[in-house]
């Protein structure tokens, strides 16, 4: 009857993100309504009409920005779910992680290049594991990238295993967490390429 702490944390996260998404939807509706009112009064001379339009447009854009963050977080919050304890999709979780790592990367003026895979990549690992390991590796990689560089993130499907590949601009220093993870056998590190593999799931 008791939940694991991760499950409780996940559940609370998803509830909170849902709540926030609901409120964002309200804001969006309000903005839409305001747009409608401006539209209805198209013939009324308003002093700052372009500014009003622009502001409303910005509100909608920012709602979308917030929503995409929340969607990514929602994906992470669902990671401890029972349905994803045996297998999960590597692509969806990597995408969510990359999205959530956008801000720390921007602070380092680092650009994250990620093209989501065209097909699902089911793997035989819990979503929680993917999130934990992926997050650790991604964060460690961002840490060692010089500012202003490009970190390429890709997913490589394979018959036995699907892999998360990171191409660093420079090899990580021996003292970095990445090297430690590589030494511990948690990731494969070759030059500037990091590979985190999970066994492919064939349902």
């Amino acid at each position: 009857m008791t939940l694991s702490p991760a499950q409780a944390m996940g559940a609370m996260t998803t509830m909170t993100t849902h709540e926030l998404q609901n409120i964002l939807a309200i804001i969006r509706e309000s903005a839409g309504l305001m747009g409608d009112i401006l539209e209805v009064n198209a013939n009324v001379a308003l002093k700052h009409r372009p500014k009003l339009d622009e502001a409303l447009g910005h509100i909608t854009t920012q709602v979308d920005r917030a929503k995409s963050l929340l969607e990514a977080m929602n994906r992470i919050g669902h990671a401890p779910d029972a349905a994803q304890q045996e297998s999960c999709d590597l692509g969806l979780h990597t995408r969510a992680l990359v999205q959530l790592c956008g801000r720390p990367a921007r602070l380092k003026e680092l650009s994250l290049q990620f093209s989501p895979p065209s097909q699902p990549l089911p793997i035989h690992a819990s979503a929680l594991q993917v999130v934990a390991e992926g997050f650790t590796v991604l964060r460690a990689a961002i840490e060692v990238c010089p500012s202003g560089s490009v970190l390429e993130i890709a997913l490589h499907p394979g018959p036995q295993a699907h892999s998360l590949m990171l191409a660093l601009p420079t090899p990580p220093p021996a003292s970095s967490l990445l090297s430690a993870l590589a030494n511990a056998g948690r990731i494969q590190l070759q030059g500037t390429t990091i590979q985190l593999s999970f066994p492919a799931h064939h349902p």
Binding site: L69, L70, V131, F135, T136
Partner: peptide, 28 residues
């Protein structure tokens, strides 16, 4: 670590979401 990865990500989002909210706030 798994628990903390969710927690850290959630905390990051909780902080990060404030930026668009602040813009919405200012625009409104």
């Amino acid at each position: 670590q798994r628990l903390s990865s969710i927690g850290r990500l959630a905390a990051g989002v909780a902080h990060e979401i404030n930026n668009p909210l602040a813009i919405i706030n200012e625009k409104a």
